[in-house]
Each structure stands twice: as C-alpha cells, then as structure tokens.
Design a protein around this nucleic acid. Structure first.
Lengths: 204, 204
DNA sequence: GTGTACCGATACGCTTGAGTACCGGTACAC
DNA sequence: GTGTACCGGTACTCAAGCGTATCGGTACAC
C-alpha cells in the first residue's frame, strides 16, 4: 500500500506531510487507549505513550497539539459499531445477537468509558469524541432494531418499555463490574435479554 | 451539644484528642465530596479543600495521613441507605418508592460514582469505602424488597428476572446522563419501574 | 549525490500538588 | 493564672508531567 493512503480528517493533518503511516498512527492510538483503560485518563502521560510505542514525545506533539486532542483523535479513530449489520428477522433474535456482540467488547469499552468518565466533563471535544466513538452508534443501531420490530408488528408503536431498552442494555453492561466485580460477558447479557428485556417488551 | 460527642471509628482517632468537632469534620467531608463531584478525584486538592473550609492543610494532614485515606473516611462517613425502611406491603409499591427515593439522590450519587470511577481501581481502601457507602447498602435494601415479594408469593422464587433487578435499577440510574445528558429524576425512574421492571417480573 | 524535513532522543522550563516543618495565637484543663 | 497542645497560616521540599527547544541521524524526493 502506498504511503499516502487514506488520510481522513481527524488523522494526520493532510496539509503537512508526515512520515507517520496510518498503521503507525493506529499504534499510537491503541497505546493511549490501552493506557487510559489501565491507569485512567489523568494518569496517562504522553511520555508513557511515547515510551510504549518507541517514539518520542516530540513526534506526538508534532501531530497533535495537546493531550486531550490526541486522546479525542484516538477515540474517533477507534469508532466502529459493535453490532452493526445485525438483522435476524425478529426483534428477539436481534437483541440476543446484540447482547452476544456486546459481551465481546464489554470489558474494553466499559473500562474506557469508566476511565474517561470524568475527564469528559472538563473537555467538550473529548466528550463529543467519546459519544461519537462509543455511545451514539450503538444507541442508533439499537433503536433501528427496535424500529424494525415495531414495523414488523412485533411490538406496538408507543410501547412504554421501548424508550428504556437502550438504557437497560447499556446500564446493565456498565454497572455489572460495580455490582459483582466482573465484566458482563455474552452469556450474562443474553440471559439478561431473555429474562428481562424481552418480557418487558411483552415478547414472552 | 457537648464537644466530645459521638466519636465513632472512622472519624477522628479516639486516642489523640482533637479539637475538631464532629460538625467540623462533616464540613471537611462534605467539602471534599463536593469537590470530587465537581472536578473529579484527581483534580481535587487538599489545598482546595482546606481553602473552602477555611482550615489549613496541616489540620487535614493531622487527622488523615494521605489524600486517599481522607477521601475514604469522607465516603464512609457519608454512608447511609437512601431507601431504607421502605415497606409498602407490595413489591410494586416498594419498587416505586425506591425509584422515587433514588431520583432524589441520583445526581449527587451518580456524579460521585462517576468521578471516583477509576481512582477506585488504584486504591483498594478507596474501593472498599465506595462500595460500603454507595453500593452495598442499596443493593442489600433492594434484595430485601425482592425477598419480601417472593415470600409474599407475588413473584415465584427463582424467577429469572430477579437477579437482574438491582443491575437494571442501578444501570439505568447511572447511564442516563451518558445517553441523554441529564440525570435520572424520580419521574423518569418511576416510569421505568412501571414500564420495564414490573413487566419483567410479571407484575403487569 | 545532494538536500530537505521529519523522526527519535534528550534536556529544559514551568506549573501543580502532595506532604512536611515551623511559628504565633488561643482555647481549654486544672 | 499558667501551661499544654491543637489550630490556622505560610513557606518549603520533592516529584511528576505538560509542552518546548535543540540536535544528530536518516529516509525519501529529485
């Protein structure tokens, strides 16, 4: 692959030519996100990221002006929909599949959200990046599932439980570690869907 | 009130006599918790707490060896069961009342949990204090409600949704700000109980 | 080959905050 | 009254981390 491939916005500024390949950039992003998960946002240091990727602090500061901007870029680059493309034909099936998929990412995503939890209230850009990367796409995907279920007539439009489903799914995901000390795995989430989410929607 | 009233454990060490009254101590604790809610654990400074309570850093360090120990003491002193003593005679009634009560504390408690979210993984004592203050008592109270409901025959023992109720309640509480930008108030929580929790339990 | 300019390394300035030391003032004990 | 010792204030040491500056090495362009 050529060296000038795929410079999107949010990555290296297109105007100045950098020798940082997209792969190298991803190493930086992966490193900083991993350190955030492990030590928390405040405890992550640019020096630590530089050391763990065997680059120099200068290199990082050449690409991103400040630490929050760097982290925000890493978050945005990490954006991806964990349960995109799920469409089993039934709402119950979709929700089960979503639970399954969510379980795979649960630990990493939850730790990241937890670690950024408060940093986000101080920096607007960070907050936006976090929502774009880890929250909004999932919510949108979930709501699409629900909308399809309504369209198919599985749940009547305006069912009171509908508006709470995303909060339930996300909520259980996030508080499991607080309550029981372990992250929500796929098995736990699928059982949750069957024991609570589907009954709440009247889908047995 | 006499000046030597009520020195529990977890407050000023009983062995050395301090002129800090319990009321004064509570001022310190309230101040540090409030600053944590506003700025996050890492950004809270002993100097800031001292300034806001018009005492000196020395005074704080005389009573508590380090910042985490100080915060842990504040948390433990703040322990109280938000929905203790609820017993309406029916599980549905209890859950509605719990939702009502939880809504009153939602903002403060959620911000505190959020702000301490990651500090807790670094300091065991802090983690224990947080659980003792904000998590365990609530869970216990909820489980007691559920147990009473089972004993009364409103829900059959072993109902699959039972084990998820605490996670649902706490989860929705905590993620509301992330999803919608506002804290879960009593109204939101009561409607959640009626739209999702009770149906999940088969209580209409 | 020659030059440009980017990379990595190191060293530095600067700020912030934890925790300590010291010093007068004063409240309470007796 | 006298003394003890605790409070509040200030000044300090020390460590850490952000962000900057500088400098050789080197890859790539031409």
């Amino acid at each position: 692959m050529t060296s000038q491939a795929a410079d999107g916005p949010d990555t290296v500024a297109a105007s100045r030519r950098s020798k940082i390949t997209p792969e190298r950039e991803r190493e930086f992003f992966d490193a900083v996100l991993e350190q955030i998960r492990e030590c928390g946002y405040d405890s992550v240091t640019m020096e630590g990221v530089a050391a763990s990727t065997r680059c120099s602090k200068s290199t990082l500061y050449r690409q991103w002006k400040t630490k929050p901007q760097f982290v925000a870029a890493a978050l945005r680059a990490n954006r991806r929909v964990r349960f995109a493309g799920i469409d089993t034909g039934s709402l119950a099936g979709d929700l089960r599949r979503a639970a399954l998929a969510a379980g795979d990412w649960s630990g990493k995503d939850t730790r990241l959200l937890q670690a950024l939890g408060h940093a986000v209230t101080a920096d607007q850009e960070l907050a936006r990046a976090l929502r774009e990367a880890l929250v909004d796409p999932e919510i949108a995907a979930l709501e699409e599932m629900l909308a399809r279920g309504v369209a198919r007539g599985e749940v009547r439009a305006g069912h009171p439980a509908l508006e709470y489903i995303p909060a339930m799914m996300f909520g259980v995901l996030r508080v499991r570690p607080v309550l029981s000390g372990q992250y929500a795995d796929s098995d736990y989430l699928v059982r949750f869907v069957e024991a609570a989410v589907l009954p709440a929607l009247g889908l047995t």
